[in-house]
């Protein structure tokens, strides 16, 4: 019996809960370590970034207004969906894939638990010197641009996304350039999860083309990036100065290091602390 001819899949973008092809009509080929063609992926354009930002903005208020308890359950549900796609995700990663998938699922579980605890740990009541009830609470910053590293294409991405969406933000993510497939498989795990469409939008493409558009888009409120070059880091910060995006670019990170990657500190850059005063005397 002859060997079956496999179907080479073209992974599409994930925008607003749908899977469109790039509006630019461009695609690139992905090869494995032995140079075998494994998939085609879209090469996203500036317009795709803009569409994804629009979708994020539509979805974000509803997600932010969901109770923290509900967001926590939805993130845990995402971990369940990833568990169901363990093999597909591991295959997409390649070498050591299983270990990376396991760590990624556990990372989502970690941040699922933060949804309804972060405000308690990092918010608080302020004992002002006067008859006022004064308290500080975190709110999501809005729409976050996520630039994923090539190193650990799934775990790196998940580590950047999870702290962002836990607090009610939406994100537009640019997948690893060298291996975007795990991110696109993750998008297929997200779609049937309970996460509303548009909260995690996934693009594949070239940083050289897209980083600038992330940095200058005025409707992106913050940037979370890792594994970018020094030039791209500077570009992200310079472009972001125009609307004062909150930019958080990691240096070297070992994403397998739980101590380093699982902390409320990863959430801090993507919340706005709001302080509310009310007189408490008549």
């Amino acid at each position: 019996m002859s060997e079956r001819l496999p179907i080479i899949k073209t992974y599409k973008l994930a925008i607003g809960g749908k899977f469109p092809r790039t509006e630019s009509g461009r695609s690139t080929s992905i090869h494995d370590a032995s140079q075998n063609l494994v998939a085609h992926v879209c090469r996203a354009s500036r317009k795709d970034v803009r569409d994804a930002v629009d979708a994020s903005h539509k979805a974000q208020p509803g997600w932010a207004n969901a109770t923290a308890f509900l967001r926590s359950q939805v993130l845990y549900r995402l971990a369940e969906m990833m568990e169901g796609k363990r093999d597909e995700l591991a295959n997409a990663i390649g070498e050591n894939g299983q270990r990376e998938v396991d760590a990624s699922i556990d990372r989502v579980v970690h941040y699922a638990g933060w949804c309804d605890k972060y405000a308690q740990v990092m918010g608080g009541s302020n004992p002002v010197a006067g008859p006022y009830h004064d308290f500080t609470v975190p709110f999501p910053v809005g729409v976050v641009g996520v630039i994923a590293p090539d190193d650990a294409p799934l775990l790196g991405l998940v580590s950047l996304i999870a702290p962002v969406i836990a607090m009610g933000n939406a994100c537009v993510t640019l997948a690893s350039e060298t291996n975007p497939v795990p991110a696109l498989v993750l998008a297929e795990a997200i779609a049937p999860s309970d996460l509303p469409g548009g909260i995690v939008n996934t693009l594949s493409g070239f940083r050289e083309e897209l980083v600038e558009h992330f940095s200058t888009h005025r409707e992106i409120d913050a940037i979370h990036a890792a594994g970018v070059s020094d030039e791209h880091r500077t570009l992200l910060r310079t472009g972001s100065a125009d609307n004062l995006k909150r930019v958080h670019v990691h240096g070297e990170v070992d994403f397998f290091d739980e101590e380093a990657c699982e902390s409320s500190a990863w959430i801090d850059p993507f919340v706005e602390f709001k302080t509310i005063w009310h007189p408490s005397a008549v």
Binding site: D134, E272, F273, I276, W277, P279
Partner: peptide, 26 residues
Amino acid sequence: AGVVWLNTYNKFDPTSPFGGYKESGF
């Protein structure tokens, strides 16, 4: 807004964080 005063305005205290959203800084 980073600071919201309800039935009062322009109150400040060292224990109370102050700062803005958006182009009011970070």
